[in-house]
Every structure is written in C-alpha cells, then in structure tokens.
Simulated assay, not measured.
Amino acid sequence: MQKFTLMLLSLVLLAPLGIDLYLPTLPDIALGLNTPVSLIQTTIPIFLLVMGLGQLVTGPLVDNYGRKPIALLGLALYVVGSAVAATASNWPMFLSARLIQGCAVCCSAVVAFSGVRDRLSGDAAARAYGFLNGALNIVPALAPLLGGLLASAFGWRAPFWFLCAYGLLIALIVLLWLPETRPADTLRVRGVPLAQYGAILRQPRFLAFAFANAGALGMVLTYVSLAPQVLMNEGGLTPIQFSFAFGANGFWIMLVSAFVNKTIRKAGRPFCLAMGFVTMLAGALLLFAGMHLLPQTMQAHWALYMLPVAVSVAGLAFTVGPATSYALEPYQQQAGVAAALQGFIQMAGGAAGSLLIVMLPVAEKSALALMMLAGAALALIAWRCSRKMHGSLTALK
C-alpha cells in the first residue's frame, strides 16, 4: 500500500510543481515575453480554474475507462504543455501552455483521489489524504528554490524543461507499475453525468465538506498570489530570501500534516475540522493585529505576514484530509465522479474566491485576512456537519 500511495503522490505533485517551481521567475518571464508581470501572475488562478473545471470531464472518464489510461493521458498533456511553455515566445503561447498543463493535472488529481477511495475508507482514507496533503508541501518548500537556481543557471525556461522531464519519468513509472484500481461494479456514465452531479450536489453533507476544502485552498492560494508583492516589494526580501521564507512555510505545513495524521487516530476527524476553524481564525486575527496595533514602521516587516500565515495554513492541514474523506465516503461506486466534483469545488471555488478577494480595493494583507475568515467560517460549518454524523455509511444510489 505504501508503494501505491507514493505512486499516487507522484501524480498529485504535478499540480503544485506547475505552480511553485516558476514563482521566483515571474518577473523574468514577464521581461522575456515583453508582458506585464500582472498578466503572468494570473496564470496561477487560471491554472487552478482549468484544473477544477476539467475534473468534471475527467471524473466520468476514470470511471468509464479506468484510472491508469487517464493518468497516462494527463501525463502526455503535461509534457506537451511544459514543452510549449519552455519554448513560448509571446503571451498567448505561454497562456496556452498553462491551459494545457491545467487540463493535464485535472486528470492526475482525479486518478489519485479516486485511487485512494478505491482502496481505503474512513479514518484510513483520511490519513492517506492527509499524507498526500502533507507530502505535497515539500513542493512549496523546495520548488521555488529549485526553480530560482535553475533559472539563475539556465534562464527562466529551464524550470519548464524540468517539468517536461518529470512528466516523462512519472509516465514511465505509471506505465510499468501503477495498478488499475477501478472496482468492477463502478457505475459507467455517458458524456458528462449531469444527473449524477446534480444528485451529489443535493447532498448538504457533500457541499459542507467540499466547500471547507475550497475555503482552505482559497486562503493558501491568496497567500501564494500575494506573497511576492508583500515579501519582496514591501518586506524587502531578495528572491533567494523569498524562496527560503516560502519554503520554510511549506516544511511547516508538512510537519503539521504529520501531526494531524496522528491526531486523527486519537481525537477523530471532527476534532481536526474544529482545529482547522480555530487556526484560520487565529491567523486572521493576528494579521489584523499586526496591521492595526503595531507602529507603522514595523508593519512592513516580512515576519508580520509569515507568522499569521504559518498559523492559518495549519488549518489547511487540519481540514483537507478529514473533509475530503467525509465528502467521498458515500460514493464507492461513483468514486471518479464524486472525486471530480469535489475537486472542481475545491479548485475552482478556491481559485474564484481568491480572485474575488484579491480584486477587492483593499491592501494585500487585508485581502488575505478576509480570505482566512472565509476559510474559517467554512471549516466551522464542516465541523458542525461532522458532529451530526453517526454510524457507517453505504453508497448512495
């Protein structure tokens, strides 16, 4: 099972690598393509929006054709998208590359999360989702530094050639060793299963947990989108210092996720959801306090951004594993469809929420604090829903 989980992790890593590896090179990409850096920054939420929307299509595909073929299709798209980004000569070409990559990672994400649901359930599934989430944070811990070093040595195109090589390597691993886990009694669908999506969306329980994930992701995405401006332009950090600060936060989430995996066994999933609410609320309050209670000369210090962020992103670790397992638990015969819909709400909802918050006419730190509050509110709703659940669950028809 450990080997299987690690292979799923290699697929899930495609998405954060596609975001974090090129963060330190955003100004260089803008200069190289003669495009405003603000346009290059929009490729982060656009990437996630495409990933979320695409899962509505790939969900039925993994149920109809199996997990492994769709994983290979996604990897092929990822390699193509990375190569196009590495050779882009203008903004439309670069944007097209990011759209292709977004389509690719929606395939790999649905395969990974439906694969966990195929093999595990209950607290065991929650721990697996928590492991994937925790291990994912090695990417924000190391990818910006790796991307910065590659760009310094070989130019801004080098990180995308790295992604191309990674995609080829994982495709070989999947082809040779990833087992097909689709259950024999999986319900097949024709086209986009609107009726099935509608039936799942009518379940308040599913919505509560899916939107809790969306709120946590939106909070982290807002932090990631605003971090270069706050830490480098306002806080005075160099690109390398930014990479280390950004990476340290990734290691922190990984440690918290390891703690959460143990906490699930001892205290249960409802307790973890409650802690998600508490930590995101505490992060928002600390951020507001730093903005309004400290002297003006201290407010630009990078630590007054990163410390509240460290508290709040712990809420992501506490929320995602339990919420995902609760959301998908009733859908053993519809794992691909349910995982796709959950992923769509998480990715598209989180990205849309982040975009709306960032577009508000408020300072960057205020925008992040508001998104933290939204994430805390959604985690609170999920916790209250989990408190009402008793006994075991069977598949919903």
Rank of each mutant, 00 (worst) to 15 (best):
F4E: 13
L9T: 11
V12C: 08
L13D: 03
G18I: 10
D20C: 08
P24F: 09
P45G: 09
I46W: 08
V57M: 13
Y65V: 08
K68A: 07
K68R: 15
L73G: 14
L77F: 14
V79L: 14
S89P: 00
Q101I: 14
G102F: 12
G102D: 11
A112R: 05
A112G: 06
Y129E: 05
G130E: 06
F131C: 03
A141M: 10
L142W: 00
P144W: 04
G155F: 07
W156D: 04
F160G: 03
F162D: 10
L163S: 07
G167Q: 12
V174D: 02
L178P: 02
P179V: 09
T181W: 09
T181A: 13
P183Y: 13
T186E: 11
G191S: 12
P193L: 11
L194Q: 04
L194R: 10
A195H: 14
Q196V: 10
Y197E: 10
F209E: 11
V220E: 01
L221V: 13
L221G: 02
T222F: 00
L226W: 01
P228N: 11
V230A: 05
I240P: 00
G247P: 04
G247M: 06
G247K: 08
W252I: 09
M254S: 14
L255C: 14
V260P: 01
K262T: 05
K262N: 13
A267E: 07
R269F: 01
M275G: 10
M275K: 06
G276R: 11
A284L: 06
L293N: 04
L294R: 04
T297R: 04
G315C: 11
P322G: 10
Q332K: 14
Q333S: 14
A335P: 06
A339C: 10
A340C: 05
L341V: 10
Q342H: 15
A352C: 08
G353I: 02
V358F: 02
V358G: 01
M359D: 13
S366H: 12
L373D: 01
A376T: 06
A379F: 09
I381Y: 08
A382F: 13
R384C: 10
C385Q: 15
S386H: 04
K388Y: 03
H390F: 12
G391M: 11
